[in-house]
C-alpha cells in the first residue's frame, strides 16, 4: 500500500533576516484531508514558514512542496488550489465585502467569480455582502477572509492565527467551519499560538519553537510521547520531595510551590502510571503526609507542549478561566 502524497512538505527549510536565523531547518509533513495545527509561541517562525510557502518571501535553504508541486518552480500551479489568510485578513475598507471578493476573483479567474455567492453564504455573510468592509467587525473580517480563501475551491487552506480577536462564539463558529471544510476532504493548515484552538480543532499538529520543529504527529501521539507526570498537592511539600525522589520508579521530583510536588515517573502505560501513583500516595500517607489532590498529567497535550517549549514550570490556567485559551505568547 502506498502512502498518499502529502499536501505540504518541507525539508530543511531555512530563513535568515540579517544575522538572525528565524527558521532553522524546518521539516513539515502535512497529509491530505486533515486539520493540521502549526503551534508555537509568537516569534517562533510560524508566519515566516507560511510566507515562504506562499511565495511572499524567499527561502534561504531547504525544499518545499505544495500539492505535489516543488517550490518555487511550481508555485503558480500549486497556489491555484490554495486559499490563504496571512497574519490577518486585510481588505479595502471602502469597498463592500462582495467587491473585495470580486477583486480577488478577478485575479483567480472566472470560476472564482461564480463562487462568490456560495462563499458568502458559507461563512454566514450573505445579506451583509454589500456593506463596506470598514464597518465589519473583526469576526466578520475573519469570515470574509475565509470566504476569499474559498474562491479558489482550495485543496489546502492556510490560516494564520485565524482566531485572533474573535470572541468565544466566533471561535466556536470558526472551529465548526474548519471541521466542515475538512469533512469535505480539504486540508486545513492552521497556525496558532493558542493550545485550545489547536487541540479542539485539529487532528494533527507540529510544534515549532525558535525556528525548529520540536514535535509533530497526531494530537494523541504528541500527548502520549511526553514523560508521565503526577502532580501532588499537600502541606509541607518540600519535606516530601526527598522521600519521593528516592524511589526507583521516579525519575525526578521537585516542589514547585509550598504545597505542590511535580513527580516525573519512569513507568510507561496508563496502568503502570496508576499503580505507581497509588504507591506514591500510600508512601506519603505512611510517612504522615496528607495529599489532598493528585493529578496525572499523562496524555495532556498542554503539558507536552509546555515541555517541548521548555516552559514546564508555569502554572496552567484553571479550566473555565478567562485565560483558559492557554496562550503561548512569550513573556
Amino acid at each position: 500500500m502506498t502512502t498518499p502524497a502529502p499536501v505540504l512538505q518541507t525539508r530543511g527549510l531555512r530563513k535568515r533576516y540579517g544575522d538572525r536565523e528565524v527558521v532553522r531547518g524546518v521539516d513539515l509533513h502535512v497529509p491530505r484531508g486533515v486539520a493540521f495545527g502549526f503551534l508555537g509561541p509568537n516569534g517562533a517562525g510560524k508566519t515566516t514558514v507560511i510566507r515562504m510557502l506562499l511565495g511572499l518571501t524567499g527561502a534561504d535553504g531547504g525544499s518545499m512542496e505544495l500539492l505535489g508541486h516543488g517550490l518555487p518552480d511550481g508555485r503558480r500551479a500549486a497556489l491555484a488550489r490554495v486559499g490563504a489568510i496571512v497574519e490577518e485578513p486585510r481588505f479595502h475598507g471602502r469597498m463592500t465585502g462582495r467587491e473585495n471578493l470580486w477583486i480577488h476573483a478577478a485575479v483567480l479567474g472566472p470560476d472564482a467569480e461564480r463562487r462568490i455567492p456560495e462563499a458568502l453564504e458559507r461563512v454566514g455573510l450573505a445579506g451583509r455582502e454589500d456593506d463596506r468592509v470598514e464597518g465589519y467587525s473583526l469576526g466578520m473580517r475573519q469570515r470574509l477572509g475565509i470566504a476569499r480563501c474559498l474562491l479558489a475551491d482550495p485543496e489546502l487552506l492556510v490560516l494564520d492565527e485565524p482566531a485572533n480577536g474573535l470572541d468565544p462564539a466566533g471561535i466556536r463558529e470558526l472551529r465548526a467551519l474548519v471541521r466542515s471544510l475538512v469533512d469535505e476532504g480539504r486540508t486545513v493548515f492552521l497556525s496558532s499560538h493558542l493550545l485550545d484552538e489547536v487541540e479542539r480543532t485539529c487532528d494533527m499538529a507540529a510544534v515549532i519553537s525558535a525556528g525548529r520543529i520540536v514535535a509533530q504527529g497526531t494530537l494523541d501521539e504528541l500527548a502520549a510521547t511526553g514523560e508521565p507526570r503526577v502532580q501532588l498537592r499537600l502541606a509541607h511539600a518540600a519535606d516530601a520531595v526527598a522521600l519521593l525522589a528516592a524511589r526507583p520508579d521516579v525519575a525526578g521530583a521537585e516542589s514547585t510551590d509550598p504545597e505542590r510536588i511535580e513527580v516525573r515517573l519512569r513507568t510507561k502505560g496508563t496502568r503502570g502510571e496508576h499503580a505507581v501513583t497509588a504507591e506514591l500516595v500510600r508512601q506519603l500517607v505512611g510517612h504522615g503526609f496528607a495529599p489532598y489532590a493528585v493529578t496525572s498529567s499523562t496524555g495532556r497535550l498542554e503539558d507536552r507542549v509546555l515541555d517541548l517549549l521548555g516552559r514546564r514550570g508555569e502554572e496552567p490556567d484553571p479550566p473555565g478561566s478567562a485565560t483558559a485559551d492557554r496562550d503561548l505568547v512569550e513573556a
Binding site: 506562499l54 497556489l79 491555484a80 490563504a84 489568510i85 486585510r90 485575479v107
Partner: peptide, 22 residues
C-alpha cells in the same frame, strides 16, 4: 500603493498569479 497599504498585496501574490501580471 493601495494593495500594499491595504494589506491585500500578500493575498494577491499568494494566488500564484505572476507578480509581473499583477
Amino acid at each position: 500603493t493601495a494593495d500594499r497599504t491595504g494589506g491585500v498585496l500578500p493575498v494577491l501574490v499568494a494566488t500564484g498569479r505572476p507578480r509581473g501580471r499583477l
